[in-house]
Amino acid sequence: METYTAMRHFADSWGLVFMFVVFVGVVLFTLRPGAKQAAADAAQIPLKED
């Protein structure tokens, strides 16, 4: 049972920090300069003719 408690404590503390860092990274990646053009290009892929 001690292993469960240790893993639960780790997930409650460092797991939250990790998820927050990932969230901030995804937001920054999405809002980076040039992302609008990359998204527009990706949106046109299904419409391109072979």
Rank of each mutant, 00 (worst) to 15 (best):
M1H: 08
M1E: 07
M1Y: 08
E2H: 02
E2T: 06
E2L: 01
E2Q: 08
T3N: 01
T3I: 00
T3F: 05
Y4R: 03
Y4I: 01
Y4V: 03
Y4G: 00
Y4W: 06
Y4F: 08
T5N: 03
T5L: 10
T5M: 03
A6S: 09
A6L: 08
A6W: 07
A6N: 05
R8N: 10
R8V: 02
R8A: 09
H9R: 11
H9Y: 13
H9E: 12
H9A: 10
F10I: 04
F10Q: 09
F10G: 00
A11G: 04
A11R: 07
A11I: 08
S13Y: 11
S13H: 14
S13T: 14
S13E: 12
S13I: 05
W14S: 04
W14H: 11
W14I: 03
G15D: 11
L16M: 10
L16H: 12
L16V: 12
V17T: 05
V17E: 02
V17W: 04
V17A: 01
V17R: 06
F18I: 04
F18S: 05
F18E: 07
F18D: 05
F18T: 06
M19I: 11
M19Y: 11
M19D: 07
F20M: 10
F20W: 10
F20S: 10
V21P: 00
V21R: 00
V21N: 01
V21C: 09
V21S: 08
V22F: 14
V22L: 15
V22S: 08
V22K: 01
F23T: 09
F23N: 03
F23R: 01
F23D: 02
V24E: 01
V24C: 03
V24T: 05
G25D: 09
G25L: 10
G25T: 07
V26N: 04
V26E: 09
V26Q: 06
V26W: 12
V27H: 04
V27M: 07
V27D: 02
L28E: 09
L28Y: 13
L28M: 12
L28Q: 13
F29W: 15
T30D: 08
L31Q: 13
L31S: 11
R32F: 12
R32I: 02
R32W: 15
P33M: 03
P33I: 00
P33S: 04
G34W: 11
G34C: 09
G34A: 06
G34Y: 14
A35S: 15
A35F: 11
K36T: 13
Q37C: 02
Q37D: 15
Q37K: 15
Q37R: 13
Q37Y: 12
Q37E: 15
A38L: 12
A38D: 14
A39L: 13
A40M: 15
A40V: 10
D41I: 04
D41R: 14
D41Q: 15
D41W: 15
D41Y: 14
A42M: 13
A42H: 13
A42S: 12
A42P: 05
A42N: 14
A42Y: 14
A43M: 13
Q44L: 14
Q44G: 07
Q44C: 09
Q44R: 14
I45T: 11
I45W: 13
I45C: 04
P46G: 01
P46Q: 02
L47S: 06
L47I: 02
L47G: 02
L47D: 06
K48R: 12
K48T: 08
E49T: 02
E49G: 03
D50R: 05
D50S: 01
D50Y: 08
D50A: 04
D50N: 07
